[in-house]
Computed example of a mutant assay.
Amino acid sequence: MNSLKTVALATFAFALFSCGGDQKSDSIPTASNTDTPAATEAPAGGADASAYDPKRGLGPHENVDVSKFDPAMAAAGKKIADVKCTSCHKPTDEKLVGPGWKGVTQRQTPEWIMNFISNPDPMIDVDPELQKQLELCLVRMPNQGLADSEAREILEYMREIDGAK
């Protein structure tokens, strides 16, 4: 019975803290700390708002080849998402902590998705749509420390959710 309580407590603690990894503060965002940074001040994390491309985002991913669907890559992406993403995101359009994933590959380019899930902070700091999303969700997406290959696998899983075959 004691080990059952220990397992239940550990599971609860993991679920409670799994999305809190890289947050900069414990406070709930307010209008004063979620506003778009002024053009004269550098956004947190060193992101340059003038370099932001709304089609690509900020980051190293420029040309992501999605010409062929890879079911093995999508399956690997689902496994990663089950560990790192599903405590905050559902594969439907339903909001959990963060927005649901259904339709994301139709709204955003593969490069934007890869750059965002690989390193969300610089994009949140400069993207007006992400800042609006932050106001709705009240939680910054934490950096999950994804390798490029993991981000690409998650993207393929997102494509599968949206009907890629």
Results as ranks from 00 to 15, higher is better:
A44K: 14
Q23Y: 14
V139P: 00
V139A: 07
P99H: 08
P99G: 12
G57S: 09
V66L: 00
I154M: 06
A10H: 06
K78I: 02
Y157I: 02
A8E: 07
S149L: 11
K68A: 11
P142T: 09
P71W: 05
W101T: 12
F17M: 11
S118I: 03
K95N: 09
K55S: 12
P43R: 07
K84Q: 10
F69R: 08
M73G: 08
D93E: 11
A13K: 06
I154S: 01
T86E: 05
A15L: 14
C137M: 08
F116L: 08
N143W: 11
R159A: 02
T86Y: 10
G98M: 07
K78Y: 04
F12T: 14
I117S: 02
G100A: 01
G57A: 02
L16C: 12
N33E: 06
W112I: 01
A44S: 10
V126Q: 00
Q131V: 09
A10M: 07
M1D: 11
S25D: 05
A15V: 10
P37D: 06
T109E: 07
D65T: 03
I80F: 04
P99E: 10
S3M: 13
I124R: 09
F17V: 15
S25Q: 08
N119M: 08
F12Q: 03
K84F: 09
E129G: 03
P99I: 10
A51V: 02
T36M: 14
D65K: 00
A13F: 13
E94P: 00
A13W: 05
K90A: 15
L136G: 02
K78M: 03
S3D: 13
V97N: 06
A49K: 15
L134N: 05
I117Q: 01
L9A: 15
E135A: 12
V126N: 01
A8F: 13
V97I: 13
K132Q: 10
V104K: 11
V139K: 13
E160W: 14
H89D: 02
F69E: 06
A42E: 10
G145C: 08
C88A: 03
A76G: 12
I154F: 04
P128E: 04
P29V: 00
G21A: 14
E62V: 10
K55F: 04
I80W: 06
K95H: 01
Q106K: 15
K24Q: 10
K165M: 08
A151G: 14
M123A: 11
W112S: 04
S27G: 10
A49S: 12
G145W: 06
P29G: 04
D35T: 12
A10Y: 08
A74N: 01
L58T: 03
R152F: 07
E156G: 02
S3W: 14
P122A: 02
E94R: 06
V66T: 15
C137F: 11
D148W: 05
M1N: 12
A76T: 14
L96K: 15
G98F: 11
S67Y: 03
T105E: 09
D65M: 05
M123W: 03
V126P: 02
S32I: 13
M114E: 09
P110I: 09
E160F: 13
A44C: 04
A39Q: 14
S27F: 05
M158Y: 04
T6M: 11
Y157Q: 04
P110R: 01
L58W: 00
N63L: 10
N143C: 08
G20F: 04
N33S: 04
S3E: 15
N63C: 06
I113E: 01
F17D: 03
D121F: 15
L134D: 03
K24M: 11
P71E: 05
